[in-house]
């Protein structure tokens, strides 16, 4: 019968370990319930965009555009008159070209390399201040392109456009009730003006789902669909840069039955 013998350090170590375990258990038990399983019951609309639309037709497509850069200011600002008064008539047009023509100095190299940039502050009329900024229309830091990126109309834009129109029409639509009435589908087309107002009256393109029982609701279904569009106008929530894409809505499908 061998008795197990602990050394003092081991006893201390085991004691500390046991105490910490109990402490940890206590902490875990006493921890207030944060309700981790909380489910935000918010509805998410999933739209499956099937059509991939054309990319921008601009001759050169910029994927990204750099951000606008302010000019580096020299360390010491010298008052213009004090340095050389005779130079002043000429430089009005010269320095304008300078900041743009010269590839913008990399921020890291600039501080040490060129103290020669002195004349720039000298010409400094307030009117020219804006020109001193490097132009750029995007937010990329590593691009030299200054033109605006092409406005692409991709699946994402298409989907959000569809959503925007849907948001307008849906609350205004009220499907008629009746036997088999949920089988009816009405497709309506309409044209929009640039300001989102309707151009002409919505037109019923086609109807489907007619049965012997819902024949009576067919015209009501079409009427309510047209009414929903009339009621939803003006569509002032659509992006003007994509007017070409939404000037003609060729088919709004009014379909009560979502499961089909």
């Amino acid at each position: 019968m061998a008795t197990i013998r602990f050394r003092d350090e081991e006893i201390i170590g085991l004691g500390v370990a046991a105490f910490l375990h109990v402490a940890l258990l206590g902490v875990l038990l006493l921890q207030p319930d944060k309700g981790g399983a909380e489910f935000a019951g918010e509805r998410v609309t999933v739209s499956l965009a099937e059509d991939v639309s054309l990319e921008s037709a601009a001759p050169e497509i910029n994927e990204e555009s750099r951000e606008a850069v302010a000019p580096e200011l020299s360390e010491m600002v010298v008052p213009p008159e004090a340095t050389d008064p005779e130079k002043s008539p000429v430089p009005v047009d010269r320095p304008v070209a300078k900041p743009t023509s010269k590839p913008p100095a990399k921020p890291n190299s600039n501080t040490s390399s060129t103290p020669k940039a002195k004349p720039t502050p000298s010409q400094g009329g307030a009117s020219k201040f804006g020109k001193a900024f490097e132009n750029g229309a995007g937010s990329a830091a590593n691009s030299q392109e200054t033109d605006a990126t092409a406005a692409t109309f991709g699946p994402r834009e298409q989907a959000s456009l569809v959503q925007a129109i849907n948001r307008k029409i849906k609350p205004k639509w009220n499907a008629p009730q009746g036997l088999d009435a949920e089988r009816l589908v009405t497709v309506v087309s309409f044209r929009l003006n640039r300001d989102g107002s309707l151009n002409g009256r919505p037109r019923v393109v086609r109807q489907s789902g007619e049965t012997a029982s819902n024949r009576a609701q067919k015209s009501i279904h079409a009427e309510r669909a047209v009414r929903a569009v009339l009621n939803a106008a003006p569509f002032d929530n659509l992006p003007p840069e994509f007017y070409d894409k939404w000037k003609y809505i060729s088919g709004v499908r009014f379909d009560r039955n979502t499961s089909r």
Binding site: N166, K170, W173, N174, V252, D255, T258
Partner: peptide, 15 residues
């Protein structure tokens, strides 16, 4: 048919 946007409007609210 002139090319235009198509979409489906559903009415999944209660009647």
């Amino acid at each position: 048919e002139e090319e235009g946007l198509t979409l489906t409007v559903t009415d999944d609210s209660a009647w």
